[in-house]
Computed example of a mutant assay.
Amino acid sequence: MDLDQTLLEIGGAPVTPYHLFSVACLFSLLLLVAAVIFAWRAQAGRREEHLAAERRRAELEYRIAELSGALKSLAEQSHGSQMQLVSALDERLDQVSQRLGLNLTDQTERTGQSLAQLHERLAVIDAAQKNIMSLSSEMLGLKEILSNKQARGAFGQARMEAIIRDGLHAGAYAFQGTLSNGTRPDCLVSLPDSPLRLVIDAKFPLEAFNALKAAKGEADIRNAEARLKADVLKHVRDIAEKYLIGGETHETAIMFVPSESVYAELYEKFEDVIQKAHRARVIIASPNVLMLLVQTLQAIFKDVRMREQAGLIKAEVTRLLEDVARLKERVGDLQKHFGAAAGDLEKLAVSAEKITRRGLKIESLELEEPAIELARPKLMEQG
């Protein structure tokens, strides 16, 4: 290779391989110098670090010696303080033990009294818990009844039947009677002096009320209220369509609600539903309202029975007056007999008095003349 051959030009100056080799040698020399300088500096640094470590080790040994002396002095002081502390603790422990013994005795007595009182209260609580458990089981049973549609219907039917049986006689009502259209209402009450019968339905829908109770948000409450209105009005329409029959049933039917709280909430918050039910000739009745209705019907039945018995009572009074008239006549006859007997008794008394006087005269020998004596028997006969 020719060392003078021009490889390239930089700023008009030619660059040859010789120039490149010279630059490479110079660069290697600089690197060698730099390595030597770095090695010398590293060795000087290690010597300085070794000297610094020696100084630190000497200072550390001196500090350890000082610390050992201080620890020894501290140990001796701590031993003396510990002995004093142990002595003071023994005295205080003796005092505390005495006080603790007294307090424990007193506390034991108080604890015994408290345990006795606690035992009595636990007995009361146990009895109350049994009552609560019994009530809870009853409430669970009631909840199951109210959650089951068929069982809830049977529950409402049972309450309605109990009220009807307690207030009306057996011939005034019929449960599950059949109408001319084939329907069977829960109760039919026969009205006095009328062929019409009053219909009572006990299957009130409660699912919507439960949904309204469980609703939390505003939207859920609106939906539950709308469902409640729809269910109640549907049941009202069903009662009006199935049970209101002209010439057979009364123009008004009763929808029985077996809960006073549901009845109160319905009248308080859903007055429009009540008004629509009235226009459909369906009256919503709670147990108390149904009981009042039954008592009114009972009074009506009583008045009807009194009117039915009025003719019999009048005939009996007529017979009684006839018996009184006959009694009066017989009393008059008896009074006449007593009057005649009284006259005879007065005559007998007069004769007895005359005989008495005559006997006294005979006893005193005050006799009169024969003519007079003969006349006396005639006078006595006339008397």
Score class of each variant (00 low, 15 high):
F21V: 06
G101H: 15
K242R: 05
L198A: 01
E207S: 11
E251A: 10
E138P: 00
E218N: 03
L188A: 13
V36K: 12
R279I: 14
E120C: 02
D344Y: 07
K72V: 09
Q298T: 00
A277F: 07
G156D: 02
G153L: 01
G339N: 14
P377C: 07
S28M: 08
Y62I: 11
V289Q: 02
H79A: 05
T6S: 11
I355G: 01
T105A: 12
R165A: 08
H19D: 08
A162C: 11
I163M: 13
G343T: 04
P377K: 05
S190R: 15
D333F: 07
D94P: 00
G217Q: 01
A34M: 05
I283E: 14
D303T: 12
A325E: 13
D2G: 03
I10P: 04
L118E: 04
I313G: 00
E251V: 08
I64G: 11
L26S: 10
I313T: 15
K229R: 06
E91Y: 04
E218K: 06
Y267R: 06
L293R: 11
Y18A: 02
G343Q: 06
E76W: 07
Q295N: 07
R57G: 12
G101N: 15
A154T: 02
A285K: 10
C187A: 13
H169G: 08
H250R: 08
I37V: 12
R121D: 04
D323G: 10
L198S: 03
K203E: 00
I164F: 06
Q95C: 11
L188P: 12
S97K: 12
S137L: 02
R222G: 05
I125S: 00
